[in-house]
Amino acid sequence: MAAPRFWREIPNRYNLIGTRCGNCNKVFFPPRYICPQCRRMGKLEPYKLSRRGKIVTYGVVHVAPEGFEDLVPYVLAIVELEDGPRLTTQVVDCDPNEIKIGDEVEMVFRRIGADREDGVIYYGFKFRKVE
């Protein structure tokens, strides 16, 4: 992957910047560039989301895709942010056996991946349980 693909989404990935429709006020993350309800009548603007949420569902990954092998077993989850939108993320620094649907989590800044050993390193959000 060339750097621009990740680079252009740095605000979204580092700081959970989503979008909000100025017409219907619905908040989107991951960002959308046209409001599915209002379509061309909508006006999407950047919107900074809350960094806390709850686990809606999760799985424990034992067979990881390339680049994630060293994290096994890791918790993959869908988190619902306080502002409403949901996202797919990892829940880090936890015992997978102690995760439950409904657990409160907060955003952390982690390495997401890298282009091999000599390529660009990608950073972004993951989540951890609120102690």
Binding site: V92, I121, K126
Partner: peptide, 16 residues
Amino acid sequence: PAPDEDTATISVEAAR
């Protein structure tokens, strides 16, 4: 550090 932590991630958390 966890496998997905490095000086950049530690710096960001400390700065935040």
